[in-house]
């Protein structure tokens, strides 16, 4: 089962390596991991996507909680939540293809953020499936380069992951 875990951790040097070290030492897999400071500069928020059966996910959460730098965590997959991922993709765009790619990008609500005589760079957000679908819609040799952030997640409604809850 795929799980998306949100973690509040102390914004300290080495905190990230404690988390990634835990995963490699215990043989858990990390599908993606993204981290940045929050509005409170002493805290970072990490979004981590992993896979495993129920027992493994339970151990992952317990082991993460055991890390001294981890303040709090929530398994977003346990409730309704929103996921978004940012992609920037550089594609070949020459001649008639330029219009075609622009149209395709519009359909996926992408925006072109850089242009050269023979390429576009497109910014796109969405869940992972949507980004995958856009990549699939492009012809294979069109893509020059892609960079993806990995998913970010937040719970729907009143549920929140903050110090005070």
């Amino acid at each position: 089962m795929r799980h998306i875990i949100s973690i509040l951790l102390e914004n300290e040097a080495g905190a990230l390596s404690r988390v990634s070290g835990l995963f490699s030492a215990r043989g858990y897999n990390i599908e993606s991991l993204t981290v940045a400071p929050t509005e409170d500069p002493t805290l970072s928020r990490m979004t981590l996507v992993t896979r495993g059966d129920e027992n493994i996910i339970e151990q992952i959460k317990k082991q993460l909680n055991k890390l001294i730098d981890v303040v709090k965590l929530v398994d977003l997959s346990e409730g309704p939540h929103i996921e978004r991922e940012l992609m920037m993709i550089k594609v070949r765009a020459e001649g008639a293809m330029r219009e075609e790619i622009k149209r395709l990008s519009d359909i996926f609500r992408g925006s072109i953020i850089d242009v050269t005589a023979n390429s576009f760079t497109i910014e796109m957000t969405g869940d992972g499936n949507k980004l995958d679908a856009f990549i699939a819609a492009l012809e294979g040799d069109t893509i020059i380069e892609t960079v993806r952030s990995g998913p970010l997640g937040i719970a729907r409604g009143g549920r929140r992951l903050t110090l005070t809850t």
Binding site: N55, E58, Q59, K62, Q63, N65, K66
Partner: peptide, 11 residues
């Protein structure tokens, strides 16, 4: 005392 010890290898 350690929650991570519980159900780690045996449910």
């Amino acid at each position: 005392v350690d929650p991570a010890s519980i159900s780690k290898t045996v449910r």
